[in-house]
Amino acid sequence: MRSLIFIPILIIGVILQSTIISQFSILSGFADLLLLIVVSWSINTDDKLAVVWAILAGSLVSIFSAMTPLVPILGYVIAVSITKSVVNRTWQVPIIAVIFSTIISTLVIHILSIGAIWINSNFSSNIVELIQIITVPSLFLNILLILPVNSLIKDISHWVFPETEIE
C-alpha cells in the first residue's frame, strides 16, 4: 500500500510534463518526465506494481496527449521491463543502469510514436530528419534530466520503503 505514493507523483509528473517540460525544447525534442519517473522508480524499488504504475502513467499521458493511448502505455511497460532487466545485469553500477535504461526506453517510445503516426496519418517526413530534430535532442534532455529525477525518486523510495536497498 505504501507504493500508492506513486500515484500523486505520476499526477504531478504529467502536469509538469504538459506545462513546463514541454516548453524547454531543443530543436523539436523535449524530455519525457513520466518516462524518467517510471524508469527511476523501477530502478530504485522492488515494487511488484511497477508495471501497473507504467500502465497508469501511460493512461495519464493519454488524457493530455493526442497520441494513440497504446503508445505511451506500451512504451512505459516496455521501459519498466527493460529497466528491470538492465538492473539485474548491471546491479553493481547503478548509474550505468539508469542511463542505459533511459536511452533504450526513449528510443523504444520514439519508435512506437513514429510507428503510430505512420499508421494514423499521411506520414511523408524523412525519418532521419525526425531522429535529428526530435529523437536526439529528446535523448540528450532525458539523459540530462534522469540524474536529478533519479536522485529524487531514490530519496522518495527510501522514505517509502526504508528496508529496501536495491543498489
Binding site: V14, Q17, S18, T19, S22, Q23, S25, S28, G29, F30, D32, L34, V61, F64, S65, A66, M67, V71, P72, H110, S113, I114, I117, L130, I134, S138
Partner: peptide, 14 residues
C-alpha cells in the same frame, strides 16, 4: 494556453 501535448511528435495545445 495552459499546456502542450506531452509527445514531441505531435503539435497540440491545451
Amino acid at each position: 494556453v495552459i499546456g502542450r501535448d506531452p509527445s514531441p511528435f505531435l503539435r497540440y495545445l491545451i
